[in-house]
Each structure stands twice: as structure tokens, then as C-alpha cells.
Design a protein around this nucleic acid. Structure first.
Lengths: 140, 140
DNA sequence: CTCCGTGCAAATACTTTGCAAAGCG
DNA sequence: CGCTTTGCAAAGTATTTGCACGGAG
């Protein structure tokens, strides 16, 4: 079976741009990345296609940081580290599973709700920003 | 020692509005809540004071949902349940601690970073929205 | 007199949307 | 054709900011 072409050229380019990075990009980053090679791309199209990807379940939002929504192509459950200075977002290697089904059950019974997913984020300074803040500290 | 008055009347009213609810309000909610009793309150003042509270460390942001930032007066570590339909946010009673110091150490070594905090969120349908979706399902 | 807090309106920043045209099967 | 995708610009929404005024010490 050959590769079926589901996507328009632009839709495909936008999806590939997202999949080929691990920076958890913003819409604007995708636009800036593709604009040189696709001069007639518009930012609205990027937003519209990301919405399509979310509806298809192949891209998800991992939250809004510093005023911009960040997206992730990796739909498997994993945690993120968010630098509160430069807003770089890093995947945390999967290790132990903190949150298992029993926790979903607990939340469901406590909140009388239906839990579908969860997120775990760690916040702090990335290696780069930590260096900068060290320099600042030292120069005092 | 008598109660020292640090806050202006409006600042105090804004802080009290936040502290006296568990809905994790938006700035707009605080504004709408106080406007009837403080007719000359402006939304900018609410935003400016919330910024002050965050800097003081007595209020924190728990993220942006449905386009609006949500705030929490409870600075102790706890998780939240977020309804993805109505965006009601519920505190999850503290139970086991999933994330302990060893996890911070793990993230710090893996990401070469300095971890200062973390957040755990659960997403799904609250009891109310679940009822609505059940009705919808049944009526089909 | 000075500083802090504030209303008001303008400015910003991000995202969404209406519409007509272009693309594609 | 008929449905989808798109550029463009305008609109929408949330938040921040400049400025001048006003109140407290």
C-alpha cells in the first residue's frame, strides 16, 4: 500500500516542522521556520492546521507559557521541564510512573469526575539560564 | 502587635476576593465580583494587584485555560482537576506525594537544570459536564 | 511634598474568523 | 463542478502600560 496523501503541501510542511523538533514550538515558530521556503504561507494557516492536528489527535497542546501556546507531537504520556526564564521546554525521560490508574480512580471519586488525562510539569532554570544567573550573582 | 495595614482598600478587597473562593478565579472574575461594591474599580487595577501578589509570593498562577490565567491563593503544593468542558478547576485533596526530592534530583540531573517547583494536573469532565454529556449521548 | 495606588484609554500580543479566490480530485 | 485549503485583513480577547490625578503620611 502506497503512502496515501492526506495532507495538502502546506499542511504536511506544518506537521513535519512540528514533528522534526523537540522544542515544543509555538505557532509563530513554525511560521518563521517555514516562511523562507514557503513565502506565501500565512500565520492563520499555521493556526488553522494546528487546530486540525489537535482534532485528529496527532498533536497536542502542552500549555500556554509566556503568552504563547506550546505544542507537542509526542502523544505518549511524559513530563516536561519548563524553564521559567527562557521558557525552553524539555522532555523528561520516562522513568517511574507516578500517576497510575489508582490515582485516576482517586481523583474521579474525590472530584466525582471523569479523568481522561494528566500532566506533570517541573519548573526552574535550565542549564543555560542557571549559568547566566550564576554570573549575575558572582558579579555582585 | 496590631494588624498592620499594608494594603490599600482596593488591594485588600482584591486579595480577599481571591482568598475567599476556591474556584481559582480569573482577573475578570475578581473584577466582576468586586465591581458592584466598588464601582470605581478598574480591571487594570485588578491585574496590577495580582501581579503584586505574585511578586509577594502570596498568590500564584496555576496556568492559562481557555485563554484566561487562573490564580490560586493556596501556595502549598497540591494538584488540580481541570474540566475540559467548563474549565472549572478543583483542588485535589492531598494524598500520597508522587513527586519527592528524588524526582527533583532526577529531573535536575537529566535536564541539567535547577528545579524549583512542579505541577500536576488532571483533565476530564467534571460531574456537571459529565451529566450533560450523558444526556446528549442518551438523547441520540 | 512625595510616593504609591488608581482610572482611563490606548497599546500590545496572541489567536480566531469572514470572505473571496485558488487548488484539487 | 463541489469540497477543501488558503491569504489576507479585520476582528476578538486577554493583558499590559502611559499618564495624570488623588489620597495618605
Amino acid at each position: 500500500m502506497q503512502t496515501r496523501r492526506n495532507f495538502s503541501a502546506k499542511r504536511e510542511a506544518i506537521y513535519k516542522a512540528i514533528v522534526n523538533t523537540n522544542i515544543h514550538p509555538t505557532a509563530e515558530w513554525v511560521y518563521d521556520k517555514l516562511k523562507p521556503e514557503i513565502p506565501d504561507l500565512s500565520l492563520g494557516t499555521v493556526y488553522r492546521n494546528i487546530t486540525v492536528f489537535k482534532e485528529m489527535g496527532i498533536v497536542k497542546s502542552i500549555g500556554v507559557y509566556n503568552g504563547q501556546e506550546r505544542y507537542d507531537w509526542d502523544m505518549s504520556p511524559h513530563s516536561h521541564f519548563v524553564c521559567t526564564a527562557c521558557f525552553k521546554i524539555t522532555d523528561i525521560p520516562k522513568g517511574r510512573n507516578f500517576v497510575d490508574k489508582s490515582m485516576y480512580d482517586f481523583v474521579e471519586s474525590e472530584c466525582n469526575s471523569e479523568v481522561k488525562s494528566h500532566s506533570i510539569n517541573f519548573f526552574g532554570l535550565c542549564s543555560n539560564c542557571r549559568s547566566v544567573s550564576n554570573l549575575t550573582t558572582q558579579s555582585k
